[in-house]
Design a protein around this nucleic acid. Structure first.
Lengths: 187, 187
DNA sequence: CTCCTCGGTCTGGTGACTGAACCGTAGCAA
DNA sequence: TTGCTACGGTTCAGTCACCAGACCGAGGAG
């Protein structure tokens, strides 16, 4: 987290986990990576996070084995979640659900997640009511709910996420032409 | 978390949750409260947390409705988890399991949780294999596993938690006689 | 060549965390 | 009554993480 990021002498796996993902911004970065955000500038666009902090978090996550860094073009890097990051999904989802329950937006749920093989929305425990399995992010499609507020963010990636989107699929194609070339719309 | 604890302009329940429980130490404090630790000094004994920070976290959690503060003796306060704090158990457990999986201690699991009505250990998703229900902390007993390291902590509460213990039941009786009066042993 | 995007690094300022000292209340013993 | 202890904090100086903004080098595009 901050200032002495570790929790020494804690005989506890929770403390160990928080040493890796407990710092400010880290879970939000990972959430976006699971959504399919891969680039430094896109993460910057969606999270109002200082550049230096984002660079620090990304390199820490690469070092911890949660993200893999690779160039998508010479000199341009992207960050892809590893299996260890995917395994964090139940924890991220559980925290989400808790926030959704105790701090609900006015209009209803902010976001839904549906299990693609079954076409059913997963329940508050992350389970698919149709097949009974705990859904992996690879099998999930996310879409905004009535409580989402599209006026909050106007970056390209956030606009794309106000449409249904399969998780883990990059929101940008590699080697995408610059923005002024694309006719408009999202991705 | 720290320095600008909020995540403004984040249209996301995860960010909202992290504004409440994302700061350093907060989840560890709540974990201990769910274990049955209720007192300022006992939390201090188990977490090497500065007094000022613990006082700040506790009052923030009371203000957020996760803990209830009440005197157990004139001038002495204790903190009890509310239903909103109990609802955080799935998220805490999921993070624990992730830490246990990717940063396993040498000897095996650090801790087990068994579903008291069934007498069965819950699985990595927090579900009781016998009855199929997501276990609530009120129905769980925790006991140390082979990976636990009793030499790390020597405070009274930690020693008590190296024995099987039903969650949410206070590890201290109210109005307990001072230590020199008790014959010995843990609580 | 110039201009632009991208993915950073650097810097000064702010504020959260740290460790240690201090403090008021209450209970107990003599 | 005095003295001692446990408890639940508060205060304070120092340190370090975070913040905002400036800067920078590599690689295309025109």
């Amino acid at each position: 987290m901050s200032l002495g990021k570790d929790y020494q002498r804690q005989d506890c796996s929770l403390a160990r986990a928080l040493e890796v993902v407990g710092e400010r911004w880290t879970l939000l970065v990972l959430r976006d990576c699971l959504f399919g955000v891969t680039r430094f500038s896109d993460l910057r666009g969606r999270l109002d996070i200082p550049r230096a902090v984002l660079a620090d978090r990304l390199s820490a996550l690469v070092g911890a084995g949660l993200l893999e860094r690779r160039p998508y073009r010479p000199g341009r890097e992207e960050y892809l979640p590893t299996e260890q990051a995917l395994a964090l999904w139940p924890a991220i989802y559980a925290l989400r659900e808790w926030g959704e329950r105790y701090y609900p937006p006015a209009g209803g749920r902010r976001r839904y997640f549906s299990h693609l093989p079954c076409g059913t929305d997963i329940d508050s425990t992350g389970r698919c009511p149709a097949c009974g399995a705990i859904a992996s992010p690879a099998e999930l499609e996310t879409r905004p709910g009535p409580g989402a507020d599209p006026t909050l963010r106007d970056d390209e990636v956030s606009r794309a996420l106000y449409q249904p989107h399969r998780m883990l699929t990059p929101l940008r194609r590699a080697a995408q032409p610059p923005a002024w070339r694309r006719p408009g719309g999202t991705d």
